[in-house]
Nucleic acid binder design. Structure first.
Lengths: 305, 305
DNA sequence: TGTGCATCATGAACGAACCTCATGATCGTC
DNA sequence: GACGATCATGAGGTTCGTTCATGATGCACA
């Protein structure tokens, strides 16, 4: 088993490039003696003569040239790696894998990422909808780097950066009886078919804020992935839904459905706040801060419709 | 400047493969402690977190995976190199660069090499005609590995392995006056146009054996590269030549030219011996011995015509 | 053909780097 | 919440690489 090291590859290359031991030693900032010992060491390890010692400006033998070829393959790989790691060190590069607890957030996230990747080309971006895994613990395990969520859990090691406020609003066909009401409350959902995203009830605003506290159970709950499909079903009066206001605002011009504020305990409106959760240890990363800034800007646009 | 070493690459790969520090340590035959120190060292060097320490079966971080990718590129290169060097060690592989001092030797060398490369596929074969360089010193400088020559120089560090004997023979057009003589001697060349290979006189049999000792100078010396062209010129009576017997024997059936033995000091025939010169230090290499054996066999066929 | 210069080799000694041992800290799990 | 498994830490010893000083060997040029 031979024991070639990077140092040896650099040595081979240096000797070949400079055409001499002394000059190579100078290039590598070690003594000529060190190199002489070193190449003897390699030859012992490899069991092969790498140099032609007969001729005085030390020359590579056939085997030496073969080793040089390997060096010319390997050294650039390491050089590239070094450049990449430098990028990571100074915060120019990194990973931004996002988990969405908020299913509707695709709507505003994609334009944000589109802007983001222009400014941070060296950051590896990805989005995962956290339908099937626990986003917050994935964040702590460093499986993802940012979680979009409206449930700050007050965990150590995790920062919750507020992004924007929003109101979940009731959506129904304009022909639906509840369209007559100015404010929708928990009891109104009794007997209704509720259309939701396919996530656990504990992560749905409507259940968390209204139905569960009031112990109201809709007649049926139908789970649908895509926002566009939910709105389509609502418009054709196959059920009612509750969506973040900004989602509905984008398509409100349609007269097929109406939106109504939710009400609770005599109050009108159920304001929620969206957060970007990140690891405390990484809150200095410039691209994370920039992402959050971009997200807030995009949210402002959304609020305007 | 970071200081990654092969050892680190193996470590990264082992940790990833085994999925744990202790198991990796076992694989690499070092202690778990050593690995722990080592990975901390790499991280310091690279200035990058390579592992997720939060989760207990130690996992690679994004940067760690990047480093792993480099390792997966580099380690196979070294493994291949190792295999090749093993081949060199046990004599299965090597280099056989041949220098020809004997210009006509292409004729029998090519079939020899054709046989040779089937048996020794891992030996790198090349031929150089030594028109423009000193083959023997190239041999000593390890620029070539075998010299075909008929001038044993009794040098230390060089072995001269006899291949076969041959007679330089006189060749002339059948219409040439000298075709009438049974034996050709030095004086017969006076007034003739002599056609030779384009090498120095000191390496031409005819000058070395006959003309120079007898201080005879032909009327003209014309240098021609290709044996076929020499024979063509001789056949059309543009000059005479002296070639090894085997060269002429292959095409002797033509009646356009005749061959005559050379004579000197009353003796008929000027026998010469062809050698394969190799470095003494390499005379144990099996493929060299085999090459010489093949060359002798081929020579026997040539003598038979 | 010898002399001088350039180049490489060698051996001892110092120093840094690495590994091991023993033990402590932390995580995941039952 | 306790236990087992996994990783971290610190001190100490060994190995390995480098330097320094000097010797050997080509190569060029006269």
């Amino acid at each position: 088993m031979m024991h070639i090291e990077i140092r040896h590859l650099r040595t081979i290359k240096a000797i070949h490039d400079t055409g001499g031991l002394a000059r190579a030693a100078d290039l590598l900032n070690i003594t000529q003696s060190a190199l002489s010992h070193q190449i003897k060491g390699i030859e012992d390890q490899a069991g092969v003569e790498l140099f032609v010692r007969r001729a005085k400006p030390l020359r590579l033998s056939a085997s030496g040239l073969r080793l040089l070829a390997a060096a010319e393959q390997i050294l650039p790989i390491l050089a590239d790696l070094e450049v990449e790691f430098e990028g990571l060190q100074d915060g120019r590069a990194g990973r931004l894998h996002i988990a969405l607890e908020c299913h509707a957030c695709f709507e505003w996230l994609l334009p944000v990422l589109e802007q983001f990747r222009k400014v941070w080309p060296d950051v590896d971006v990805d989005i995962r909808s956290s339908l099937s895994f626990d986003a917050m613990s994935a964040l702590r395990r460093e499986e993802v780097d940012l979680v979009v969520s409206s449930d700050p859990e007050d965990q150590s090691e995790v920062d919750f950066n507020p992004l924007f406020d929003y109101d979940p609003v009731f959506v129904a066909s304009s022909h639906h009886p509840l369209a007559q009401k100015a404010v929708i409350e928990a009891q109104d959902f009794e007997g209704q078919t509720l259309i939701t995203y396919p996530v656990d009830r504990s992560r749905l605003d409507i259940f968390k804020m209204l139905l569960s506290p009031a112990r109201v159970e809709p007649a049926a709950v139908r789970q649908v992935e895509l926002t566009a499909v939910i709105l389509m079903l609502v418009a054709s009066n196959r059920g009612v839904s509750v969506l973040p206001d900004w989602v509905v605002r984008q398509v409100r011009q349609s007269s097929d459905y109406v939106t109504r504020p939710l009400g609770k305990d005599g109050q009108v409106g159920v304001t929620r706040r969206m957060f970007a959760a990140t690891r405390e240890s990484e809150n200095t990363r410039p691209y994370l801060a920039h992402f959050i800034r971009l997200a807030r800007q995009e949210a402002v646009k959304l609020q305007r419709g």
